[in-house]
């Protein structure tokens, strides 16, 4: 059973290895002289005014929060969907209540304007 997961681990290592190998080749083969202008952040020709890690729109944060809620919901739905026949009507009603609660929350977000982007 767990032996089936060993190739996955090896594949992850191979994939990371390919990435590391490519990066190493780039640093070894790639040539060029470094100077201050080349190493400065790209800013359309002038000196950057300030550090670029400044405030950004709170809506990105909202999207991240909403994503966590819905992604957890999907994580609950997956095992339910696979065992739909085994859990039967009881499972269906339980998941219906769970989904209904989330849909109410989703409608609230919608009405509050958390999904508006203009």
């Amino acid at each position: 059973m767990l032996q089936n997961y060993l190739p996955v681990l090896i594949f992850l290592a191979v994939a990371a290895g390919i990435g590391v190998l490519l990066m190493a080749m780039g640093f070894l083969i790639g040539s060029g002289k470094k100077y201050d202008e080349k190493l400065s952040p790209y800013e359309c020709g002038f000196e950057p005014f300030e550090d670029s890690r400044t405030k950004f729109d709170v809506r990105y944060y909202l999207v991240a929060i909403l994503f966590i809620i819905f992604d957890l919901e999907i994580a609950f739905l997956f095992p339910w969907a696979v065992s739909l026949d085994a859990v039967g009507g009881f499972g269906l009603i339980a998941m219906g209540i769970f989904l209904a609660v989330l849909v109410v929350g989703f409608i609230y977000e919608w009405k509050k304007g958390a999904l508006e982007w203009d």
Binding site: G30, G32, D36, L39, S40
Partner: peptide, 12 residues
């Protein structure tokens, strides 16, 4: 792409 320089910006 392999023979191009990999630039790591100073402020990064």
């Amino acid at each position: 792409l392999l023979i191009k320089e990999v630039i790591v910006p100073a402020k990064s």
